[in-house]
């Protein structure tokens, strides 16, 4: 069956336990074919549950979902043939070597390493020097690369990556996103979840999620463009005092730390002089102010607070 989207969810709801704690709350969105789609939200937002529903590991209580046109409840066998999945936690056999892990997953998917070697070549050559090492003895970055190879070994049409960069240092994270870009060029649809807001701009489109609800789905660019207020970045010699002072300032609508700056939104038009005078009076120095464009993190904060 030919479908319009690579992934589609319609009002998917999933609850857990006797108390019916809602993990996923009427979630609807779609992922286009060949897209690199990001599901961005903190821990416990419902990202993993959505991934498990899409990969046919969990059944949703309500709603419908399709992967490449296959319905997740009844056509799970088809989906399992075309989906590649890398769960959040380490999911290799620590007592098997790199090569053994890869060969094993290849046969599980009824293929061989040689058959799809082209696809994983770029990633695999980085871990090839360690191919006889047990997977449990690899470094974090290496494990992640091996897990990605294993998820790709059967040339899946849709690749599900559940928090692949969580707990990984910034250098390895960058490398990982480079790999994803290359895979995208091979025509694989990729859906990736992450708690890191700064990874949003690396995706074609993103969905922001919290408490099981989708807050917004769009390109990162559009989200930023549609941010309602003008944001200003204010810096001084002391962050905590700056934040406390700004919160007391009557014109301030919202303010929070953002890296070395505090991001501030004002109720009315921004006037630099009185604010600077006020801050000096509060005992701050080295004051610097500028208008800034909102980031995805600003958007997320805005959506969470509204």
């Amino acid at each position: 069956m030919e479908s319009l989207y690579a992934i589609e969810l319609r009002k998917i709801t999933k609850t857990y336990g006797k108390e019916k704690q809602v993990a996923v709350d009427e979630v609807s969105f779609h992922v286009n074919k060949g897209e690199l789609f990001g599901l961005i939200g903190p821990d416990g937002a419902g990202k993993t549950s959505i991934f498990r529903i899409l990969t046919t590991l969990l059944l949703a209580e309500q709603g419908e979902a399709w992967v490449e046109g296959f319905e997740v409840r009844h056509e799970y066998r088809e989906i399992r043939k075309i989906a590649g999945y890398m769960p959040g936690k380490f999911s290799l056999y620590p007592d098997l070597t790199v090569a053994e892990n890869l060969n094993f997953f290849a046969t599980v998917f009824d293929t061989t390493v040689a058959e799809n070697y082209e696809l994983i070549k770029d990633i695999y050559i980085q871990i090839e020097p360690f191919k006889d090492r047990r997977a449990g003895k690899l470094s974090g970055g290496m494990k992640q690369k091996l897990a990605l190879c294993c998820a790709l070994i059967h040339r899946p049409r849709v690749l599900f990556l559940d928090e692949p960069t969580t707990g990984v240092d910034p250098v390895s994270r960058k490398e990982f996103w480079e790999m994803l870009k290359k895979l995208k060029m091979q025509g694989i649809t990729i859906i990736v979840s992450t708690p890191y807001m700064d990874e949003a701009s690396l995706c074609d489109r993103i969905a922001l999620i919290q408490y099981g609800k989708i807050l917004s789905v769009d390109t990162a660019e559009n989200m930023v463009k549609n941010y309602p207020e003008q944001l200003y970045a204010v810096k001084s010699n002391q962050m905590y005092l700056l934040l406390k002072s700004l919160r007391k300032y009557p014109e301030v609508l919202d303010c929070y730390a953002f890296g070395e700056y505090a991001h501030v939104a004002f109720k009315n038009a921004f006037e630099a002089a009185p604010l600077e005078a006020y801050l000096r009076k509060e005992g701050l120095s080295e004051i610097e102010m500028k208008a800034v464009e909102a980031s995805i993190e600003d958007c997320f904060i805005k959506l969470l607070k509204s």
């Binding site: 939200g41 903190p42 707990g167 708690p195 807001m197 905590y240 997320f300 904060i301």
Partner: peptide
């Protein structure tokens, strides 16, 4: 790790307070 951006900032408020 993994905490939402609003809570992370509230967390840092606690850190600042303890430091003060």
């Amino acid at each position: 790790g993994g905490v939402d951006p609003v809570t992370r900032r509230q967390f840092w408020d606690l850190i600042y307070e303890a430091s003060a």
